[in-house]
């Protein structure tokens, strides 16, 4: 018997991660619940006037998406580190680059993708102009994938630490900034009737860059964390 090819192994990891996520539905529900709670709190804090809310909506939605991603990114490699699976992954003959990409893909499918799909509901709660809904979903789809990749770098570096929660925020928040800026700008542009395309294109370019580079950083981070 020979070892499975890299692509096949990647799909196997993806299935494994998705199965694990489905077995723990709380972890899929938590980011969505967080999103709903924060969005519900803003009208209480800012006042329920529809005009005021609409002005803040694009920023609020994007910041909330970013924070809920930040909350979950710590857990990407955590349980595998604790039960020794991560050691086995590092010793696998398949390239670690693709393996971590499968992990991040599963993370995005269970957090970012769902968040982007339900975001129109929350957008309506904040009275975001319906013309901007398309831009919101598109920017969140690209943006959350980018956030997952960046979060994975932080997770790989802090997985060996007992309490890496605060450190991971410090490490990856600066890298989240450009995503937040262009993501919310895309929605804002659509609100004011301008094309959101250029902003989405920049997000897409950043995503391409992150897909190419972040797995390298994650692989190196994991090797350091396991070695320590």
């Amino acid at each position: 018997m020979t070892a499975p090819a890299a692509g096949q192994f990647c799909l196997r990891l993806l299935r494994r991660q998705l199965l694990l996520a489905v077995r723990r539905p709380v972890e899929i529900g938590n980011p969505l619940l967080f999103f709903a709670m924060v969005v519900a709190l803003f009208p209480l804090g800012l006042g329920p006037a529809p005009g005021t809310l609409a002005g803040f909506a694009s920023g609020v939605l994007w910041i909330t998406a970013l924070l809920s991603n930040l909350l979950t990114s710590d857990a990407v490699f955590r349980s595998d580190f604790e039960d020794g699976s991560l050691e086995q992954l590092l010793l696998a003959p398949q390239p670690l680059f693709l393996s971590v990409l499968a992990y991040i893909g599963a993370h995005w499918l269970t957090t970012g993708l769902l968040l982007a799909l339900v975001s129109p509901v929350f957008a309506l709660m904040l009275n975001l102009s319906t013309a901007a809904l398309g831009a919101l979903v598109a920017s969140l789809l690209i943006g959350t994938a980018l956030l997952s990749l960046i979060g994975g770098i932080g997770a790989s570096l802090t997985v060996g630490l007992k309490r890496g929660g605060m450190l991971i925020s410090l490490l990856i928040l600066p890298l989240y900034m450009p995503v937040l800026i262009f993501g919310s700008a895309a929605v804002q542009a659509a609100v004011s009737g301008l094309p959101a395309g250029p902003y989405l294109a920049i997000l897409g370019a950043m995503l391409c860059l992150a897909i190419a580079l972040a797995p390298l950083a994650m692989a190196a981070g994991l090797r350091i964390s396991i070695d320590a």
């Binding site: 018997m1 499975p4 196997r12 494994r16 694990l20 723990r24 020794g84 050691e87 010793l91």
Partner: peptide
């Protein structure tokens, strides 16, 4: 390599643990 930790996922069944094993030495 079998280390100190058994690398068995508590949420998966033994069958799934072996079928989806992360060490990738075989299918």
């Amino acid at each position: 390599y079998l280390g100190h930790q058994s690398a068995v996922k508590a949420l998966l069944t033994p069958r799934e643990n072996l079928a989806f094993h992360v060490s990738g030495e075989g299918q």
